[in-house]
Every structure is written in structure tokens, then in C-alpha cells.
Simulated assay, not measured.
Amino acid sequence: MQRIRKYNFKSKALFFLSLLSVMFFSSCEDVVKLDLETGETRLVVDAEIIWQKGTTGNVQVIKISKTAPYYNNTTPKVSGAQVKVQNSNGDVFTFNETEPGSYVCNNFVPVLNMDYTLSVTAEGQSFKATEKLTSVTPIDRVEQEIHKDGQGKESIEVVYYFKDPVDQVNYYLTDYKVDFLIYPEYLLTDDEFYNGNEINNRFTNADDKIQPGKND
């Protein structure tokens, strides 16, 4: 009889501990909203000159907005700004506002290895930046693989390969745009450990939204 009582006590104890574990892990699913501080509002200039192979590159877009609190669902757009880009030959390209915060140039002329200076005046503030338009290393191949996470769940992973030039110091900014992403995802890398070698970058989605046959 004593052994039976001892066994029952252990069973009840294990059941009690299991119940506590379930309650503990269930509580981890609660959404925690942090009380974050809101910093000073600043202007944000999103400017990049993209010349895709096979296009003229004459249409370029620059966006101007303001910073917003972390939990805001919208970003304030900035209207009435003066936006222009000047190349090293002195040619000036004016960007006109087509919708709030979006400034478009329809006659831009991209030239590789030429310097371009961006000038922005908005809400009493002025900004200026100069950069050289450089070509990117071509992608050699793109492959699709099945990726397994730590729990064995499978998802599709897109892998692309390119060769890094050996005689240059390079930085790479990859812009992922797919239909299920609200905002583009960016990946910034350099060739510090891969100079002159083949580099591969990978893109996958934790929610398994990448599907075969989609070219996004």
C-alpha cells in the first residue's frame, strides 16, 4: 500500500508540474507592447538611382517623408520640397512632385562612373549628397533549394551566386521585393572575407510564402 501511495503522489506531482508548464508557455504568446520613447521628428530622403539593364533609366523616383513613432501604421509624407540632381557635366535633372512625398524625373540620363549630386530643400532644411553611379556585379545563376529549420519544417529558399572582382573593395546592397512583403527587405554585405571569390546570398520566408513558379 505504501508503494501505491508513493506512486500516486509522484503522478500527481508530475501532472501538476506539466500543468504549470502548459500555463507558462501559453502565457508566452501574449503580445507585449513596449512603452517606447518618441524621438525628435526628422526628414527622411529615400533616393537611389537605379538603371536596370535593358531600360533607358530615364524615369527615377525620390521619396521624402518624416520619421514616425514605432507603432504608427503610416509614415508622414513631405510635400512642397525642391529636389534636383546634377551630374559632373553640369546637367541638372529636376524631380517634380507627382503625389504627396513622391518626386519623379522623366528625363534622367544615367551614365556609368559619373558623379551625381543630389540637392533637397524641404521645410526650411537643405541636404546635399554626391555619389558615383557604378555598375553591379552580374548574377551568374539563381537556384531554388529546400531549407529546413531547427524543427524540421521545410520552406523554399532562393539562392543567387555572383563573382566578386578581386581588384576592388566592394559593398553590396540587395533589395528584395516580393508581393507578400509590406516593405522591401534589404541586405547589406561587403567583400572583406570573400574578395575575388564567388559569393552567394539567400532569401527565404519564415511563413513559407515563397511558392514555385513565381518570379517576384
Results as ranks from 00 to 15, higher is better:
R3V: 02
R3N: 15
R5P: 04
F9Q: 13
S11C: 12
S11M: 14
K12E: 12
A13C: 03
L14C: 06
F16K: 06
L17Q: 00
L17T: 09
L19W: 00
M23P: 00
F25R: 02
S26G: 15
S27Q: 00
D30N: 13
K33L: 13
T38F: 04
G39W: 07
G39M: 07
V44C: 02
A47H: 07
A47F: 06
A47W: 07
E48N: 07
I49N: 09
I50T: 08
I50K: 10
Q52K: 12
K53L: 05
K53R: 08
G54W: 07
G54D: 08
T55H: 03
T56F: 01
V59N: 07
Q60L: 09
V61E: 14
V61D: 09
I62F: 09
I62N: 04
I64P: 06
I64W: 05
K66H: 15
T67I: 08
T74W: 05
T75N: 06
P76G: 09
P76D: 05
K77F: 13
S79H: 04
Q86R: 13
N87S: 08
S88T: 12
D91Q: 11
F93S: 01
N96C: 04
N96V: 13
E97R: 07
E97I: 02
E99W: 06
E99G: 11
P100A: 03
C105V: 07
F108A: 13
V109I: 14
V109E: 13
L112T: 14
M114W: 05
D115C: 09
L118H: 04
S119D: 09
S119L: 03
T121K: 05
A122D: 08
S126Q: 12
S126L: 02
A129V: 11
E131P: 01
E131K: 13
S135I: 06
S135H: 10
S135P: 00
I139H: 03
I139Q: 09
E143W: 06
Q144R: 09
D149Y: 08
G150Y: 12
K153N: 10
V158R: 08
V159F: 06
F162I: 00
K163C: 00
D164I: 05
D164Q: 00
P165C: 03
P165Y: 04
N170K: 12
L173H: 05
K177V: 15
K177E: 13
V178P: 01
F180S: 08
L181D: 06
Y183T: 10
Y183P: 00
Y183Q: 13
L187Q: 12
D191F: 01
E192F: 12
E192I: 15
E192T: 15
Y194L: 12
Y194V: 11
Y194C: 07
I199T: 11
N201Y: 11
F203T: 10
F203E: 03
T204V: 07
N205P: 01
D207A: 14
Q211V: 13
Q211L: 14
